[in-house]
Design a binder for these strands. Structure first.
Length: 512
RNA sequence: GCGGGAGUAGCUCAGCUGGCUAGAGCAUUAGCCUUCCAAGCUAAGGGUCGCGGGUUCGAAUCCCGUUUCCCGCUCCA
């Protein structure tokens, strides 16, 4: 375990040292759980996006991409359920240091009374056997009535407190009921605090309830509200998908583990609209398709794990995560959800607009079902970094740190290195540099010994190095050095250029 | 939000029973050397010791507060 913790630390240091990820506002001591992507990080991130976008949009004739605004009409979040569900009243027990949802504590308390009623019913059944009339019993038994009265009373108070967002009343209710912490058994509670997972801000210069809008907590709703626009203008036929890459914001209580959980993050989502009844077979299809996408990167199948959700969100009828083996263990990387027609139906209701698809073959219209694939871009970035980072022991006993980033994703594809800084070698190297630049991200480096420059490029994951030596001036051959094997081959400049361009092309990942 | 640990140069850290101008290695820059797998030579730059306050003749070091990061709990559509 200690080694895993160390390895995340090493990766964080490495990411900062080489310009992949910096703490945001670093010179002001950073901002909690916010990070900036540096010169190499931005490049790597863009490459990941490109891989995802192309495999979704370019490789599927029935998937198109959009880019919706972060600001959306406030009612969107009422319809989606986020306003209600992303709003939790929380309370801490001061002794056990445990945190609970205040309303859940009360509900669990209510459940105790319900259990008592159930017990009475069972007792009654035993005593009276077949002659027992449950309904009659519930209406007349004094013990039951007393408990039921309690339940009703608590429920009334709980609802009143929740509806008025009266946090003090909620706390008072917990104290009056003498609810104790299940762990410590203590009744030493903090204040109840409201945690809203959505960031809000004001639209326009006049503040007020009407102008209060949210930063989107997920990108999916931007797709749902554009369902008809895209379907009509793109003449899309079901099944079809809409893809989107964009930022989302959640005011997490604790955001941690480097870029794994941030308050501002980027999602790559695709909502696939299907005929009702066919959603589960498409769900399976996308599960497999997405695993294939991950496995094409070659990190190893054992790095991934499929985790089915047992407890489903209110909108889903099937859900699973693709988990990745991060240094801190297997964690969610991508979610695949069968969202049914929940979202479109809700938007129909709240907007009053029909969000239906007319199926010409069946000659009927319906609200499509939705299968969603949703991957965290920042998590994908972290997964790539973690899987690529290796501290290798070489045969001669020395060590090297190398990022074995898949070639197509590597921020820099090739380094052009003159063996020495004289005899016209830099000039020759520059020629090659300029030839390659229009095609791939290329670095030129003439400082320090050749071995040192190789190591520097290993550390940022450059898959190829082209070394220009004296022989190059005579016969136009160079040494092509491979990052992963450290092997070298002597080939012509022309061959080397072709090889580098071909091997690092994103197309090598897209063949399906 | 609670508890634990930490914050000193770009990175990794030493110094921290208070006391000269705050150090090392690596990295960076310039020059030398010219060598196909780091760690050759010379020189230089870089730090208000996370921030604020206090104690003291004197604080990186002691005290208080605060902030950021890591770990655990918690939360996680």
């Amino acid at each position: 375990m200690a080694t895993n913790e160390d390895s995340l630390k090493n990766i964080i240091s490495h990411a900062k040292e080489y310009g992949f990820v910096f703490p945001s506002s670093d010179i002001y001591d950073g901002l909690s759980a916010t990070y900036d992507y540096g010169q190499l990080g931005a490049q790597l991130k863009n490459n990941i996006k490109e891989y995802w976008w192309k495999s979704m949009v370019q490789m599927h004739e029935n998937i198109v991409g959009i880019d919706a605004a972060i600001f959306m009409h406030p009612t969107v979040w009422k319809a989606s359920g986020h306003v209600d569900a992303f709003n939790d009243p929380l309370i801490d027990n001061k002794d056990s240091k445990k945190r609970y949802r205040a309303d859940v504590l009360v509900e669990e308390h209510i459940a105790k009374y319900e259990a008592k009623i159930q017990k009475e019913v069972e007792k009654g059944q035993k005593r009276f056997g077949d002659a027992f009339d449950t309904e009659q019993f519930l209406k007349t038994n004094p013990n039951v009535l007393r408990n039921q009265e309690k339940i009703d009373e608590i429920n009334t108070k709980l609802e009143a407190a929740l509806n008025d967002s009266n946090l003090d009343a909620l706390r008072q209710l917990i104290i009056d009921l003498e609810i104790a912490c299940p762990i410590s058994g203590s009744k030493n509670w903090t204040e109840v605090r409201q945690f809203n997972l959505m960031f809000s801000t004001e639209l326009g210069s006049v503040a007020g309830d009407a102008a209060k809008i949210y930063l989107r907590p997920e990108t999916a709703q931007g797709i749902f509200v554009n369902f008809l626009n895209v379907q009509k203008t793109g003449r899309m036929k079901i099944p079809f998908g809409i893809a989107q890459i964009g930022k989302a914001f959640r005011n997490e209580i604790v955001a941690r583990q480097f870029i794994f959980r941030m308050r501002e993050f980027e999602q790559m989502e695709m909502q696939f609209f299907v005929k009702p009844g066919e959603e589960l077979q498409w769900y399976k299809y996308w599960q497999e398709a997405r695993l294939k996408w991950h496995n094409a990167l070659g990190f190893g199948e054992n790095k991934y794990r499929l985790h089915d959700h047992l407890k489903l969100a209110h909108y889903a009828n099937a859900a699973s995560d693709i988990e990745f083996d991060f240094p801190m263990g297997f964690k969610e990387l991508e979610g695949i959800h069968s969202r049914t027609d929940f979202d479109l139906k809700q938007h129909e209701e709240f907007s009053g607009k029909k969000l239906r698809y007319f199926d010409p073959e069946a000659n009927e219209n319906y609200i499509p079902y939705v299968v969603e694939t949703s991957i965290g871009l920042d998590r994908m970035f972290l997964a790539t970094l973690c899987a690529s980072y290796q501290n290798e022991k070489l045969e001669d006993g020395s060590e090297r740190v190398v990022l074995k980033i898949p070639m197509a994703l590597a921020p820099v594809k090739v380094a052009i290195l003159p063996l020495v800084k004289k005899d016209g070698l830099p000039e020759k190297a520059m020629e090659i540099f300029n030839q390659l630049r229009p095609f791939v991200q290329t670095n030129y480096d003439e400082k320090d010994s050749i071995g040192k420059r190789y190591r520097r490029n290993d550390a940022i994951g450059t898959p190829f190095a082209i070394t220009v030596d004296h022989q190059t001036l005579e016969d136009n051959t160079i040494t092509l050095r491979h990052r992963d094997s450290m092997e070298q081959e002597r080939i012509s400049i022309k061959e080397a250029i072709e090889k580098v361009i071909q091997k690092t092309d994103i197309r090598s990942l897209l063949s399906c």
